[in-house]
Simulated scan of single mutants.
Amino acid sequence: MLKGVLLAFLAYAVFAISDASVKLLKGGLNAYEIIFWGALMGFTILPLVRRPGERYRDVFSASDWRLWIMRAVAALAGSLGSVMAFTWLPMAEAFALLFLLPAFVTILSVVLLKEHVGWRRWGAVAMGFIGVLVVLRPGFRELNPGHAGALMGALASAVTIVMLRALGAREKRVSLYGAGLVGPLLGGFIMMLPGFLWPSLEQWVFLLGYGMLAAAGNALLMLASALAPASLVAPPQYSQMIWAIGFGHWVFHDRLDAPMILGVAIIIGAGAITFLREKKREPKGWRRTPLIHPQ
Results as ranks from 00 to 15, higher is better:
Y238W: 12
G217F: 06
G78M: 12
G285L: 04
A179C: 14
L223Q: 12
L98E: 01
L167D: 09
V162Q: 07
A179T: 13
G27F: 13
F86C: 06
A62M: 08
G149C: 12
M127L: 15
K172T: 13
W68Y: 15
A154E: 05
R255D: 06
L256M: 08
V22G: 12
A62K: 04
P184N: 05
P47G: 07
I261N: 09
L101Y: 13
I273R: 00
A234K: 14
G183F: 02
V251E: 09
D257I: 10
I130C: 13
R170A: 10
H249Q: 13
L276W: 12
H147L: 03
G180E: 15
S175K: 01
A244P: 08
R57W: 11
M70S: 15
G42C: 07
E33C: 14
F104Q: 02
F15S: 10
I45S: 01
A72V: 05
Q295H: 06
A219R: 07
I268R: 02
M191Y: 08
W119P: 00
K23G: 04
A150I: 11
L208T: 04
N144G: 13
R71E: 13
V205D: 06
T44M: 11
K284W: 14
L7A: 13
M260R: 11
K114Q: 10
E202R: 10
Q237A: 09
L2F: 14
L25V: 14
G217D: 13
E33A: 15
A234T: 14
G263Y: 01
A169W: 05
L221W: 10
G81F: 05
M41W: 05
A216K: 09
A215C: 04
P90N: 04
F86K: 04
E93A: 09
V5F: 04
L185H: 07
V59M: 15
A77N: 08
V205P: 04
A96T: 10
R287I: 10
S175L: 02
A228G: 05
S157D: 02
L220P: 02
E115L: 00
A8V: 12
G188A: 12
S63F: 02
F95C: 00
L48Y: 12
H253I: 09
L186C: 15
V105F: 06
G187V: 04
V182Q: 10
A166L: 07
L186S: 14
E282N: 14
A154S: 09
M191I: 06
I161H: 13
F9L: 15
K23P: 03
A85Q: 06
I261R: 09
A234F: 13
H249S: 15
Q203I: 06
A16L: 03
R277N: 09
D64R: 15
R281C: 00
F252A: 06
A103I: 08
Y56A: 15
F43C: 07
A270C: 11
R66P: 00
A31I: 10
A103E: 12
I245D: 11
R57D: 09
A92M: 02
V110C: 11
E142V: 12
I267D: 03
F275P: 00
V135K: 06
F252I: 07
R55V: 05
E54S: 07
I34C: 04
A124T: 00
L113G: 14
V49Y: 03
L108Q: 02
L29C: 09
V14T: 15
L89D: 04
L46C: 09
